[in-house]
Design a protein around this nucleic acid. Structure first.
Lengths: 340, 340
DNA sequence: GAATTTAAGACAATCGATTGCATAATAATA
DNA sequence: TATTATTATGCAATCGATTGTCTTAAATTC
């Protein structure tokens, strides 16, 4: 009953060959005859041999581990990307190691260190909100292992990345709001150091211009874009009696807060004020009215990120070009933005 | 510029000691003098030494990796538990390896195999819906490494587990519905092979009995409890003209579907029909009315699961008692269930 | 049939850290 | 001072798989 795990040496002994032969046989090396391979495979099964990845990793330098860094694992977007990554990785017999930065620069740096120490074969990450410099990511690249960024990326890093076309998503949304009668559109944004917010704002501005509406900086409000922020911003606007007929938020949470306050004040959505968010969080289809938003293609993004990662991993060329994949977002038109 | 990673041998050479001394010094072994330890630490920093976890893992048999198996990473509950686990694990300098079973038995078995091959130091898991037998989990236990189950557990396994008191959560919810005037309460449930659903049903039944209401099996409906299931079940009831004044669903998604259909048919919630779900999914606080539900304490559950795991890991006793932690759920009373 | 390839394995070093046992040097004890 | 304990390291094996080089025997070529 003693289940001592079998090693290649046990197999070797049983067949009167050496461990190297067994190793090569198991790896389908052409230097080993078919007959021997068959025998090895048979004994391996018989002994219930399970390869020791750690030993293999030590010698070969490949751990079959991918480090994944996200700000937080329990936001729908990130957990969906993780889901996508995991699916691809598992199929290729790789494992993913998750770590969270909590949007803290310090933790992000620590996470990179920890993952490198764990000898991951590469890293997939989405940059935290407070990340100031990117030396830790450069360290990964210097090691010569693949690094792929998704969604929250950095322009300072010559590295493969997967994003959605935030500009386009915002542009289409604002254009849609205008086509449905909106003229004075508030925009909720956040730190312009973060690409996605900069791009969404740009999309907002361009859509206004293209529709002959002047951009009024006073209508662009910056916050952390949580639900509470959305509430406060709208309450402020109402207090100051600022006139507006629509809100385009770069975050679904903030637009949710906005909608709550507007409804509390008796405004009719979408008749008096139209709303649109960004992210297609699950709750946006459960509210009343349902919220128009932009789908970020999170699961496909995870899959494509993983695929990009494996391309890099298998690409033996010395300096693989940094490849930028831009996914097309999808405007999901729902009740909060319809004409009357 | 060549950044060859330093090993303990490099440190040893520089100090004219052996690698074993360096290893012991780094591990703060009492057999090494303070003076030497200081010197080693200094040179280690100077060479930017980073320990190779793989090498250490091979020799010591400890990978500092925890395998985590969940049905899906992108459901709020699971991603929150993952978040909690990660937080604790990271603090203890452990890494977590995520894999998803997609509620498929086959995948779950494969995941266990893969994690064991990756030499994880233990496994934390929530069992899939279709899991028929538990041999794969027994295999983990036979290996003598910790296994902790959370939420979806198995009574057949003598293993530490962390759950919420599903019975209590359901009981309190149904009691609350009755106290608010409900008399004929529908219950949405799912496979009775899964503990949590069995317990929730039991809580429902007990609460009815304790309030002098007879349990009517016709009012208990079984499904997969997705949103669509909730819709269908309610549509059926309305078609059949079944009378009821409340619905208690073991899933928030199903109750959401129910609410949609009821509102579409002109029913007033909660005046005519009261609703309550289970899980405290984020969307339940954004609907109209907001949905009464039971909070499952997902992040604490993750943390406690991880803590239980580490207790087991550090417990050198041969046969640590399987420890069952039962968290108290929290009934979150919202608009969908209030008296008139 | 001698010379040269080729095929199939064996041998042994290696990856980097850990650890049981041995040893040298020093301190404590008789 | 001789003897025993103690302290601080060194030595070498080990974890399990991988891989460059070498060897042997069979196959091919002329």
């Amino acid at each position: 009953m003693k289940k001592e795990k079998a090693t290649i040496h046990d197999i070797a002994e049983k067949l009167n060959v050496t461990a190297s032969t067994v190793s090569r046989a198991l790896n389908d090396n052409p230097r080993i005859s078919e007959a021997t391979k068959k025998k090895v495979l048979k004994v391996a099964k018989q002994l219930n041999y399970q390869p020791n990845h750690i030993a293999s990793a030590l010698r070969s330098g490949k751990s079959r581990l991918i480090g994944v860094i996200v700000p937080t694992a329990n936001r729908n977007f990130f957990s969906s990307v993780i889901r996508g990554i995991e699916e691809i990785a598992t199929n290729l017999n790789y494992r993913i190691v998750i770590s969270q930065s909590y949007d803290e620069f310090e933790k992000e740096v620590q996470n990179v260190e920890a993952l490198l120490n764990a000898q991951v074969d590469g890293v997939i990450a989405s940059i935290g909100k407070t990340t100031e410099n990117i030396e830790h990511f450069e360290k990964i690249m210097k090691k010569g292992i693949p690094l792929v960024l998704f969604d929250r990326v950095s322009n300072d890093l010559e590295v493969s990345q997967v994003v959605i076309d935030d500009f386009l998503g915002a542009y289409q949304t604002v254009d849609h709001l205008i086509k449905n009668g909106a003229k004075r559109i508030i925009h909720f944004s956040s730190s312009q150091r973060i690409n996605i917010y900069k791009e969404r704002k740009r999309g907002y501005e361009e859509a206004l211009k293209d529709n002959g509406i002047e951009v009024d900086p006073a209508l662009i409000l910056y916050s952390n874009m949580q639900l509470e922020d959305g509430r406060k911003l709208i309450e402020d606007l109402l207090k100051k009696d600022v006139k507006f007929d629509a809100v385009f938020s770069a975050s679904d949470y903030a637009i949710m807060g906005a909608m709550q306050v507007l409804k509390e004040h008796g405004y009719k959505i979408p008749q008096q004020i139209k709303l649109a968010g960004f992210g297609n969080e699950p709750f946006t289809s459960f509210t009343e009215p349902t919220i128009t938003t932009v789908d970020q293609k999170s699961i496909p993004m995870g899959k494509i990120t993983a695929e990009t990662f494996f391309e890099l991993l298998n690409d033996k060329k010395t300096d693989p070009m940094a490849k930028k994949t831009i996914l097309k977002p999808e405007l999901i038109i729902r009740g909060s933005s319809q004409k009357n």
